[in-house]
Nucleic acid binder design. Structure first.
Lengths: 218, 218
DNA sequence: CGTTGTGAAGGAGTTCACAGCA
DNA sequence: TGCTGTGAACTCCTTCACAACG
């Protein structure tokens, strides 16, 4: 079981397992077999067991995993012990949406501050918070002890902003900026690019149309 | 070079290359070496060359790749020859944001229709379109010949909606629903879960804090 | 008996390293 | 000479298959 670090591919699945477990708990289930969890998460049983084995988790042979206990272990592994303050930089269309999106709140994150550079936006009330000036970034990060930031600003201003966030103490950034951004070692950046996702889908959609029918002679 | 299908990992990077090439073109560059492209996209030169080789692309040895030509080839490979009509299902907080997000438009997609189930939302003007009833889904898909859909509705209604979209002729779905959804063979579904992304970041952020400093006793 | 936990096998993706060509 | 294109080596991830065990 435990030896080196948890593989990145496994880490990316842990939140999915957690979500599936919370749904199971909601439905009154209190034990799940790896196969049940696999079905709910969209993977397969072997993968589920291997993934969970990295946590040193113990299910019960012949029975399965305790839903509540496993959910607790996953939350702990992910560092979700309390509501984590997140700073959102960029309150344009997308930023505004993210601010209103209650999925963050429901899954353990609190948007502690909204920042923007535009004078017309600063001072506005968005999703129950007053937008502050990005000039106050360093104070805001310190004030809330935020180590997570969400970035939704234009590409041109993004790299300097990343550098400022890192200098201010942010250790992980979720970027919606459609450009490569560099961070130093010890800081994690994940990029979500919505148009890229559609383009990937476009590739496969088009493939299916072009390809010969895989089966059946009509 | 070309043999079997293009690896999924490569497909997921093609839009990133395309984006980098468009930026280069914007900046007046007309030839890039694999190393330049790698730097711009955040990968490495060997990966770039191997990826492009699957397209049967030919750069010029000793010189590099023609920016405009390669961008055209990538667009073609991705099926981005024209503005593709996309149907958005779910005009809540997130859906509203997606509707207003101009990244889709700028990168070759047109939100052809916005659909929702809530009577209070139907008929509203959102991002310049009138929201239509989800009851009209089948007509709307046929009308615009949309093969792509974006799904931003609550988890509870999601699977039946996926089934309806597929039955109506949609071949690729970008889902923001935080649950596993099944699609038949020949239909592609990509899931983007914003809270999951933050949870993954949380894991790494917390790791760094717990780990001993990797170098230098400062 | 049923399900976990895990070595071992297999497959996918990445990187190396260099021959081939402009 | 410089950079592409690509087999081969390597690393990472997934799946198999079964012993271990409640």
């Amino acid at each position: 079981m435990r030896d080196g670090p948890i593989p990145a591919a496994t880490v990316a699945r842990l939140p999915v397992y957690l979500q599936a477990l919370l749904e199971a708990a909601e439905a009154g289930v209190d034990v799940v077999a790896s196969d049940d969890l696999a079905r709910a998460a969209g993977y397969n049983a072997a993968k589920v067991r291997k993934d969970l084995s990295y946590l040193g988790t113990h299910g019960t042979r012949g029975v399965g995993y305790d839903v509540e206990g496993l959910a607790r272990e996953l939350s702990l592994a992910l560092g979700l012990v309390e509501d984590r303050p997140v700073v959102l930089v960029g309150v344009g269309n997308l930023g505004r949406a993210l601010a209103s999106y209650d999925g963050f709140r429901r899954r353990g994150f609190r948007l502690a501050a909204l920042l923007d550079a535009a004078p017309t936006v600063i001072g506005q009330e968005v999703a129950g918070s007053r937008v502050r000036s990005v000039a106050e970034l360093e104070e805001v990060v310190a004030e809330h002890a935020s180590s997570l930031a969400v970035l939704a600003i234009p590409a041109a201003q993004a790299q300097p902003m990343v550098d400022r966030l890192v200098a201010a103490g942010v250790r992980a950034i979720l970027s919606f900026v459609p450009t490569h951004l560099s961070v130093p070692d010890g800081v994690t950046l994940r990029r979500v690019d919505l148009a890229t996702e559609l383009q990937i889908l476009s590739f496969y959609e088009q493939l299916v149309v072009d390809a010969p029918a895989p089966t059946a002679p009509f």
